[in-house]
Every structure is written in structure tokens, then in C-alpha cells.
Computed example of a mutant assay.
Amino acid sequence: MITGMDRLNAAAKGEKSDRIPVFCSLFDQGQKELGISSEKYFSNGEYIAQAQLKIREKYGHDNLWSLFYVGREAELLGCKKILFSEQGPPNVADFIIKNHEDIHRLQIPEDISLIPAFEQELKCLKILTQEAGGKYPICAYLTASMTLPALLMGMDKWMELLFLGPRDVRDELLEKCSDFFKKHWKACKKAGADIFVYANAFGSTDTVPMKFFKEHSLGWMEKDLENIDKTGLVYYCGSSRLNNVIDIVIEKLGISTLYLSPFDDVAQGKKIVAGRGVTCGVINDIPMIDSSENEIKQEVKRIISAGIKGGKFAFGTIGIPYNTPERNIFAMVEAACKYGGYEYWKK
């Protein structure tokens, strides 16, 4: 039987499997799948792992997630208050950095895996590795140094510090966040993760001007990734566009898997990557809440048709909303498997 890992390895090598890899981001659906409250669900790594395995089996996509929710990293650094929702992802409810003195006091643990708050993620990764290791890629979510402060102090205060300074305080925080990124990557890799989604909202010129990207974002990304094994690393900027930074990312950062925005031109992105890595075409999954099954299938076909020629291509989502009808998720995955089949395009 061909596995998700087989498909991913084939895509990375420019070889053809039965179809392209299909990656789904189904997080909050786990609590619904297990029939438990959000707070209970996200408190236990065993629940996360069970739900991920169950969801993958149900829909038939090719990956598993060790991510609990964006904001979990703030807990690893001391956040004690999380706001839970029964119809969406949890979020940070109390920022650990309220003033510059808090930045000076912030300490990055030497070994992330020894933090009590990381215990449940280790439990999740252990189960996923035991049950599906080597068969389906296990994805970890890692926040870049320039984006992590938004989870620690709020986006408004971080933007003020980032652009207005004081510079020494800003750089002190970035140094600590970069150190955390490296240690978080190491802990996840050691625990069995295969894919490392390098998330950076400031890695796209949708968020910052190109001049800032080159003079500031790039340098901190290089620092984050210094002495890091790039195997399995995925460049990801949420729904922000990548096409005009792809060349820089490949040449300067050595990342060869580019997770496009739903708003990027897929054919153009594939052309820019030019065989130097894997291009992932991504659907805008927010409208899937109200779209018809046929509309979803046609959108999937459009994305895949623009990128499948020549291989080294995958299909993905950003974060499928909690209230998306199951029939629409089935329609999306079924269409991705159908139109992602290389034999289909020989007809």
C-alpha cells in the first residue's frame, strides 16, 4: 500500500507516485470527533493523537499534526491563561510580556522537552510515532523569532516595539525568541516529528515592505535556521503571499518546500520554484463553510491543474474552520486525490 510518506518522498525527489501528497489542517475538529469539550480535549496529548489518527483515517489525507493550537508556545514560556472556545481554536488570554522589564526577565529553558507544559506534546508525538511513524508525515508547527513576540505581548505592542524600538530591547527579545525556536525544533525532531512548518507572518511582503523583509526579516530567519537541518522544513506565512520572496527563500535560507498562499498565482509560484523544491498549492478554506461541494471540487481542480505538471507538487489547506460541513471536507479531499492523480491528466 502506498503511504503518505511514500507520496511525500516521491514529490521531494521529483518522482511520480499514484498521486500528489494531500495535506489537511484539521485541528479543532478533534474535540468534535471525540465528543469532549475544547478545554478537556486540548489538555491531553493522548486526545490530540487519537483524534489526528481518527481524522486522517476518516478523510484519507496524507499527514498528521502534533500541533495543539497556535499560542501553545506561549504556554511553554509561562502563559497561564488560555481562552477556550467550543467552536474554534483556543487563544492566549494573558500576555506574559506587559512591559520592557518582562523582556529582560524572560528566560528560555535550556531543554524544551523538560518543561512540564511540553509533556503533553511529547505524549502526542510518541503516540503518533508509534502508530503511524514512517507511514504518514507527522507535522510540527514552529513559530519564527519575528512572529513569536506577538504571542507573548500582543500584535499591537509587538508592532510598536518592532518598528519604533528601542532597538536594544527589540533585539534582546528577538534573540531570545530565536533561541527558543532552535530549542523547540530540536525537541520536536527528537520526539519524532518529520515536517517542521516554519511559520512567519513577517516572511511575506503582504505584511512588511520588501525593504524591511530584506534588511530585517531575512537576517532573523537566517539566525533562526543557522545550523538547523533543513530536511522537512516548510516555509509558511499563513494566508500571506510568497511568490515575490520565493527566490530569496530558496537561495538565502535553503528551504525547498514552499507552502503558497491561497492568493498566490499557483502556476507562477511553480515556475519561480523551477524544480528547486516542492511547491504546495493551497485552497482558501474559509469559504468552505458555505461553499457547495461542486464549487469546492472545481477550486481544487483549478489549483492542482496549475501546478501538477512536472511533479514536485502538493496540495494543502491553511486551517479548515471548525464549522465546515463534513461533506465539504470529504469533497475537497476526494477531489484532491482524484485530480492529484497523475493518470488523470494523461486522459
Rank of each mutant, 00 (worst) to 15 (best):
L173I: 12
F84N: 09
T231C: 07
A10Y: 10
K190G: 00
L225W: 04
K223I: 10
L142C: 04
E46L: 11
Y339Q: 00
G232V: 01
E295P: 01
E101Y: 10
F27Q: 11
V333H: 01
K347W: 03
G219R: 14
F180G: 03
K135W: 03
H216M: 15
S85L: 02
M210F: 14
Y235L: 01
D265K: 01
A51L: 02
N44D: 13
V234L: 11
N200K: 02
D6E: 04
P137A: 14
D102Q: 13
C188R: 01
A274E: 13
A74Y: 10
G310V: 00
R327C: 14
G14D: 01
W65I: 06
F196H: 14
A51E: 06
H61D: 13
L174R: 10
V245K: 11
E175S: 09
M288D: 00
A199V: 10
D206E: 08
W185T: 12
L233F: 05
G307E: 04
R276A: 13
N284P: 09
S85R: 12
F181Q: 00
V92R: 04
W65C: 08
P166F: 11
A117D: 13
I303H: 00
N63L: 14
L122S: 12
K297N: 04
N63F: 11
G316Q: 07
N44H: 06
E334A: 09
I103V: 12
Q120Y: 08
P90N: 02
L148V: 14
E160P: 02
V70P: 04
P137H: 07
D28M: 02
L76K: 10
F181V: 03
L53F: 01
T257S: 12
A331R: 01
K123C: 15
V273W: 14
I48S: 11
D168E: 10
Y339S: 02
L26K: 00
R19L: 13
T129Q: 11
V300I: 00
A199D: 02
